[in-house]
Computed example of a mutant assay.
Amino acid sequence: MFTGIITDVGDIASLSPTAQGQLHRLRITCRYDQTTIADGASIACNGVCLTVVASGVTDGLTWFDVDAAAETLRMTTAREWTKGTRLNLERALKIGDELGGHIVAGHADGIATIVVRDDLPDMARFELRAPRELARFIAPKGSITLDGVSLTVNTVADDIFSVLIIPHTLTVTTLGDWQAGREVNIEVDLMARYAARLTEMRV
């Protein structure tokens, strides 16, 4: 489990697809202390929970390897990642950690597309189009996770929703690079999903 509070931005140093194209081995460099990264640990990469299979230090820079399986490549923007792609990173929650964002599973539900970027004084406003099947889980003032970042929904109109990004978030995540047309991973709020399921069961 995660909170959507990004703790580092990593870079893909290498990407090696298998012959069958069903699995991608990624090497990601970061600023984490390598001694704290255990094999089998979960790290959210642009909102996608991936399992560490190896880690080390090269030229003073920490790296860790993860595998992205076929379903991950089908459902998320991981299929478009290349060497040099910057990724929002978050370590898995520990008991006693501060819950600064909202409860995030790291299981991306699909891909949203940025349709508008408005640069405001010290802030940015983005309008995004959600997949039709996910739009019903998105509500004004509700929580949403985009590329691993916990955000508050500002407005909703059909399958279009907007978010406002404060200067700190623009600086410490990849969101400052976002432009219209970009695709991002989306995870809807777990509470909204369960509430919708309970409503369906009562019908």
Rank of each mutant, 00 (worst) to 15 (best):
F64T: 05
I114H: 01
C30Q: 09
A135G: 08
E90V: 02
V57Q: 12
G40K: 10
C45G: 01
C49I: 02
A124V: 12
A108P: 01
A124N: 08
V48F: 02
G84D: 10
R117A: 07
E127W: 12
E71D: 05
I114P: 00
H102V: 09
G56H: 07
A54T: 01
R74E: 12
L99E: 10
R31A: 14
L128E: 01
T36A: 15
R91I: 02
K94E: 13
A130G: 03
I138C: 03
A68D: 05
R136I: 12
T36C: 13
L87C: 10
E80L: 12
T113D: 08
D118G: 00
R129G: 05
V52K: 07
H107C: 02
D59P: 01
I114F: 00
G40C: 05
A92S: 15
A70K: 00
I95Q: 04
A139E: 11
D59A: 13
D118E: 15
G106Y: 00
A108Q: 01
T113F: 03
A92T: 07
G56Q: 11
A139D: 06
G40W: 11
D122C: 02
N88L: 07
W63N: 06
A135L: 01
R132H: 12
L87R: 13
L87I: 11
V116R: 14
E98H: 05
Q34T: 09
Y32G: 09
I37Y: 06
L61Y: 06
E71Q: 10
T85C: 11
L93W: 05
A124M: 08
I111L: 08
N46A: 13
C49F: 04
R86D: 08
L50M: 10
F137Y: 15
R136Q: 14
L120A: 09
A139F: 11
A135F: 04
A130Q: 04
E127T: 15
A78L: 06
T58P: 01
D109W: 01
M123G: 00
T51D: 07
E90H: 09
T36G: 12
R86S: 15
C49R: 05
S55G: 02
D118Q: 13
T76D: 09
T113Q: 15
R79V: 11
G56E: 10
A112E: 07
G96R: 04
H102G: 12
T36Q: 15
I37H: 04
P140F: 02
K141P: 01
C30N: 08
